[in-house]
Design a protein around this nucleic acid. Structure first.
Lengths: 188, 188
DNA sequence: TAGGCTTGCCTAGAGGTCCTAGGCAAATGA
DNA sequence: TCATTTGCCTAGGACCTCTAGGCAAGCCTA
């Protein structure tokens, strides 16, 4: 029998695709094994357990998201940067729902430090260079921005905005306007 | 043998307590059956399946949260109302993490309409009475508020704010100030 | 190129969760 | 009191997780 050539990285990559297809919570060791035409026991020499697999997936997604956002941010500042960041963030969540869900996993502090999780805050901070904000307002604003982006995207995906006819797109644009004017006049 | 006296409501209530103890994702039919000293098959005459159980839990949590928030809102307006709403929302999430997670479940439109999910938007709208906002700005603002509250609370719980020493409490208060001033001068 | 070593995927199997079908006994009420 | 309903049971299948141990493919070294 030819070997399937599994590695932790290939498994993680396949898990990411699987997540987007069937949802993060359905990313299972057996499903992944089926995908490679392999017995599920075979995966346990590459990943420790199902949780480990999901953590790897989360780390992958965080890195991808950070890349996207970082690209979007390049060469922009002020409201331009804010809008580019926000749209890149939201687009990633829509294009890769399973991966995006993965980014919300609670990682242990060690993994979080190693992963791109910290890069997010750093990049959000980069947006603020176009505004006149200094510590500790900067941290407060970073948390505010992150909260609003994540909150909007996750409520949108959960269908929380379907009850009202007002377009989700229009509200999003207004939210970005609101954030911009808020950052311009951050209450101190 | 004496009967355990199970009903869908008792199961849902117990599931809610279980969720807060062990996390929403660990609310399982078998765990619930163990809690009542009963075989898991016995629960299936009261609930359709595991998903049905979680939906009932979500509906319960949505109703509880709506009650809390509604109480907090009583007799207040303007920033007072905003702060009371936000704090009640956040407190519920902290006191009942499992239930709060349940409120984020994607409910089918039918269930969502019947449940208290719609009541949230309505109550958030009540906050805005103290501010000078009319449609469609009102809907945009409701979505914005909801996003920020949910985003903040869920990132906080996921540990996303631990990387920085700045107090989570302080940032929260500043976020409320920011929302207040944003609503006062909602960009149109 | 023959031997040994490492490593990848295997089989076997235990334990957990979800759920259905069908049975018996407790509660209800005529 | 006896029939009906209702509640919890046993049995069992399907799927997921994970461990232990085995065999053979591919890699080294001589």
């Amino acid at each position: 029998m030819a070997r399937a050539g599994l590695t932790a990285d290939r498994l993680t990559q396949a898990a990411a695709e699987l997540a987007d297809e069937v949802g993060f919570e359905n990313v299972t060791v057996s499903a992944l094994a089926r995908h490679f035409g392999v017995k599920d026991a075979s995966l346990y020499s590459h990943i420790r357990n199902a949780h480990d697999l999901r953590v790897r997936l989360a780390v992958l997604a965080l890195a991808e998201l950070a890349d996207r956002v970082s690209d979007a941010l390049a060469g922009r500042s002020g409201k331009d940067a804010l809008v580019a960041f926000a749209n890149a963030y939201r687009r990633y969540a829509h294009e890769h729902p399973g991966r995006y869900t993965a980014t919300q996993m609670a990682l242990d502090p060690d993994t979080a430090a190693t992963s791109a999780a910290g890069k997010h805050a750093e990049m959000t901070r980069a947006i603020l260079r176009g505004y006149d904000l200094w510590e500790p307002d900067q941290t407060d604003a970073v948390r505010f921005l992150h909260s609003t982006f994540h909150g909007y995207v996750s409520l949108e995906r959960a269908g929380a905005f379907h009850s009202h006819p007002r377009g989700v797109e229009a509200s999003w644009l207004r939210a970005l306007d609101a954030l911009d004017s808020l950052l311009r006049a951050w209450p101190s």
